[in-house]
Amino acid sequence: MDKRPTKKTKGQAALGRDIQAKIGQQLRAYYDALIEPTPERFADLLRRLDKPGGKEPPE
């Protein structure tokens, strides 16, 4: 495993915990807002392709 210390240049100083926490919280909020139940088209796709003959799903 790479145990070398992280090279810290001027622009790359570690961020404080509060700032990291704030970014983490905003990132999760951003991502969570994109989460929707699986669109039916994908469930359909998997059902249809399950059968090698390409049988269409019942309407």
């Binding site: 100083a13 404080g16 700032i19």
Partner: peptide, 19 residues
């Protein structure tokens, strides 16, 4: 290192300096 740089850049862009 990419995650760290991403956080630093975001902190700058969003002007997150201090709570």
């Amino acid at each position: 290192s990419r995650v760290n740089r991403a956080r630093i850049r975001l902190a700058r862009l969003l002007a997150i300096e201090d709570p």
